[in-house]
Design a protein around this nucleic acid. Structure first.
Lengths: 156, 156
DNA sequence: CTTTAATTCTACTAATTCCATAGAATTAGC
DNA sequence: GCTAATTCTATGGAATTAGTAGAATTAAAG
């Protein structure tokens, strides 16, 4: 199960993707999306959302502009941000055990032979299949059709 | 990530599978595996293990016999107990969101249209792929070759 | 330069879940 | 009845999750 943080992060990213001016000229977007709007329309606690947006910024998925007319915008293109990227950033390892993880690998403390571990073997298969799907889907895909009207439709 | 409980449950089930007399005659095994041994050889806190075994019993995966020569044994055959079964029993839903779950379905509180939700759609795919692997692997598969020597080898 | 309205950052709290332990009750065999 | 096992319920601490508070900072606009 994903955390609420992850859920909020996805909602926020989709919101930004759907609202920012994608007309980029010199590398950065021209319109900034305010945390206030994301929070209100997504029914996300604003202060909590700010923390999450900060993490997404540290993860170099979005960036922000301060000040009166500030807000958030994508650094990468939404097409280039996969579910796997967001998952790793917010909820951590995708694998079910550390010893089956690519990016968060840790050795089991009481494992004499990883090669012979049938459980690890099985859970690596789970990881691979999960990754296939999570890496195939990006924010742009999710944004399409998800946001319908400012008043109603958050779907996750 | 799976919980320690899940890890211990798998270790326990594999241990029982490897130690119980599989020579069943009238429907129940003839040899019982003691929690004490499972705990000692698997380095599992005994009291915690008891709780876990109790849950596995309530989930009708194993059964127990009380008394001096008591212990635990499989109700189903180890071949019939899949990773998915244990996961659902111990760690709950396999899907990443409740609205994408088969066995633990819950509606999102703020979702106007499940059919149109692209996130749900993506996470259902994740669930399906995960299930394929988890349902393919059973305790018998995992037990084979995993247990090597009473003194050393727990592998997960 | 001052005001204003936004983000940034750090710290804190409440609630929940996870991990583990304690101990009394129960059961079964000798 | 004694012993050694499971059964069951309760409890406690640690870790994680979810959310809050408030001051600091930034940048545009009047």
């Amino acid at each position: 199960m994903i955390s609420k943080k992850m859920k909020y992060a996805l909602k926020a990213l989709i919101h930004i993707a759907n609202h920012q001016d994608t007309n980029v000229s010199d590398g950065h977007a021209v319109e900034y999306v305010k945390a206030h709007d994301i929070a209100e329309q997504g029914h996300i606690p604003k202060k909590f959302l700010e923390q999450i947006l900060l993490e997404l910024k540290k993860g170099r998925i979005i960036n922000s502009k301060q000040g009166n007319v500030g807000g958030y915008y994508f650094v990468k293109k939404p097409e280039q941000v996969t579910l796997a990227d967001v998952y790793r950033l917010i909820d951590g390892p995708i694998a079910l055990v550390p010893c089956a993880s690519k990016n968060f690998y840790e050795k089991c403390d009481d494992c004499p032979s990883e090669e012979e571990c049938s459980i690890r073997h099985a859970l690596i298969q789970v990881r691979d299949e999960t990754l296939k799907v999570l890496e195939k889907k990006n924010i742009h895909d999710l944004a399409k059709g998800t946001y319908i009207d400012a008043n109603v439709s958050w779907t996750i």
